[in-house]
Amino acid sequence: MYNKADDRRNNVDRIQHNISNTIQNIHRADEMIEETDDEKMKKTLSDKNERREEALNAMRSEIKDEAIDKQNGYR
């Protein structure tokens, strides 16, 4: 079986795209929280946003790692 080479050239772009989508989802959820009176829905959306914030931190860290790898000559 042929192993595909680790092509990380577009990783930063892919991660940045995911960050942008996650931020949009956070804003949409915040809007929904403001518009609903359903406390269960507010809690569900708040919980999701907490996980999204954690994911954002991880993605931002991954971008930093990619930048370090690039400086160290990894392509």
Results as ranks from 00 to 15, higher is better:
E39L: 04
E54V: 00
Y2P: 07
E39K: 10
D69P: 09
I63F: 14
A5G: 10
E34D: 12
A55E: 12
G73D: 06
R52M: 07
Y74M: 13
N25V: 06
I68Q: 12
I63E: 12
I68M: 14
S61L: 12
S46A: 05
N18H: 10
R52Q: 08
E39T: 09
N11Q: 12
D30I: 00
K48N: 04
N18L: 13
N49S: 07
R28D: 13
V12T: 07
S46W: 15
R9M: 06
S46G: 13
R75Y: 14
N11S: 04
H27C: 00
N11T: 09
R52C: 06
N21Q: 08
E35D: 03
N25G: 07
R75V: 14
R28M: 06
R14N: 06
K43Y: 04
T36D: 05
I15W: 04
D37M: 04
R9W: 03
K40M: 08
D47E: 07
E53Q: 02
R51P: 01
E34N: 15
R14I: 04
N10M: 14
E34W: 12
T44E: 15
D69Q: 14
R14M: 03
R14H: 00
R75M: 10
I15T: 03
E39S: 11
D47L: 02
I33R: 01
D38P: 01
V12Y: 05
Q24Y: 11
E39D: 05
N21C: 08
E34M: 15
A55K: 09
E50T: 01
I33V: 00
A29F: 03
T44G: 07
N25M: 14
N18D: 14
D69S: 08
N49T: 06
N25Y: 01
T44V: 12
K70I: 14
E50S: 00
M1V: 13
T22G: 12
A29R: 02
R9K: 02
K43D: 03
D7W: 15
D38Q: 04
A58I: 07
I19T: 09
L56M: 03
Q24M: 09
Q71Y: 01
E62Q: 01
N18W: 10
H17K: 15
M41W: 13
N72R: 09
R14G: 00
E35K: 06
Y74R: 08
K64E: 02
E34Q: 15
A29K: 02
D65K: 15
D6A: 10
T22D: 13
E35Q: 09
M32A: 03
I23D: 13
L45G: 00
E31N: 09
D38L: 12
L56P: 04
N11L: 10
I23P: 06
S61Q: 09
A55P: 04
R9Q: 01
A55M: 11
I19Y: 04
I68Y: 13
E54R: 03
N3D: 14
R52Y: 09
L56R: 01
N49E: 07
E35H: 08
A29I: 00
T22Q: 11
E34H: 10
N21E: 07
I23C: 11
N25E: 02
K70Q: 03
I19E: 10
I33S: 03
T22H: 07
I33Q: 05
Q71S: 01
D30C: 09
T36Q: 03
A58V: 06
D65H: 14
E50A: 01
E39I: 08
I63M: 15
